[in-house]
Write a protein that binds this DNA or RNA. Sequence first.
DNA 1: TGAGCCATCCCGAGAAAACGGGATGTCGCT
DNA 2: AGCGACATCCCGTTTTCTCGGGATGGCTCA
Lengths: 218, 218
Amino acid sequence: MTESTSTKPISVWLVEDNRHFSEAIECIFESEDGINLKESFRSAEAVLKALAKKTPPQVIILDLGLPGMSGIEAIPEILQHAPKCHVLVLTTDDGRSKVLAAIANGAAGYLLKGDDLDAIVSGIRDVVDGRAAINSRVSRMILDIFRKIPKPPPEAKLTSRESEILCLLADGKIKKEVADQLGISYYTVDTHVKRIYKKLQVNNLSGAIARMTQSGGE
Amino acid sequence: MTESTSTKPISVWLVEDNRHFSEAIECIFESEDGINLKESFRSAEAVLKALAKKTPPQVIILDLGLPGMSGIEAIPEILQHAPKCHVLVLTTDDGRSKVLAAIANGAAGYLLKGDDLDAIVSGIRDVVDGRAAINSRVSRMILDIFRKIPKPPPEAKLTSRESEILCLLADGKIKKEVADQLGISYYTVDTHVKRIYKKLQVNNLSGAIARMTQSGGE
DNA sequence: TGAGCCATCCCGAGAAAACGGGATGTCGCT
DNA sequence: AGCGACATCCCGTTTTCTCGGGATGGCTCA
């Protein structure tokens, strides 16, 4: 669990438009044995261009508030060119939408500029070891969001048969097709669907599917 | 951001059936100024009983692999009796279902027994300060799950009007109702829906709603 | 052995949706 | 002035759903 201290140094690129901050980071990393800061960029465009020519680093530390192309947009581009590279977001903005977008786009970590510098260093190790480096405040936000997603699973226990049928219907199939596919009568499907409506307290397929995909979507 | 070092000590309860581990923890906490380990329990039942009588601590460190009632089940019970208490899960099991269940049930943190003891101590501070304390491996898992949810956002650009209508339909409303609510004709709604089907490449509402809720669900 | 739950099948009337047209007007851009 | 995207409205036919019944057999549990 603590094996990365004395292995070969981790290659890192930095993308940060703020001169002061990037210099501070560069300075810190120089006195860190395990970190080898190889390049430093001021924009997403610059790092993407470099990615096309040079061999990618293990970690790219990415600011989000960049001029031109935003860091958020850059993440998928980076990962497309260098799928094995770990993108570690390091920014000031801990807004919900930014966090979510970064994660959705493939960020392996999300740290804040207010974090301790050791946290950043150990975050780098985390991401190369396949773990996530998330600021604890951001973690909390993610957890809160997480909790809200599978929120309303009150009483809506469908039979396995019923959810099977609802699934097929959600694929856009019509009852007749479902019946054929399951080798049962149209009427049976219809009856199942009626019961689904009762249980889910809806009165048409649309409502049922909406309920289903928003609660027991898995 | 680093204000909790010299404030009043944090009151903590420990729930852990493994004697060795709980003694180790107790030992560590004794030499920690900021932590005041007040009680130690061997089961979920025991801590729940205590919660009914004594004033709850700020943090409850909870093992999941308990005899009798599992830690997972205990979390909601604890929070019901002590809503302001922070439950910090500390266990060996980093299985996906356990993690998700713990979070869904309201855990403020999820650390592993393999973590550094300082990580546990700082995790306690994190949770009382409203942040999350998540092991980085577990974070990674959560992120991976997160990414899978809003996965397929390919090309399905609906007009704002179109998605508005689709939303209403997803609530189970019928076209007539949508028309009334928007103050437009039934025919207009019908036309919009037709175009939605074309764009989404489906041929009924069910498919459209499924697509919508699974991609641009927000 | 009866009660409950589940899955299955059946019918018919009326409501709603799907679909393939055709049509008008606005707005912004060129 | 024209083009394209968008929103609006209209009609008729065919298809599908919705929902009110009713009915059977299997299974489990008390």
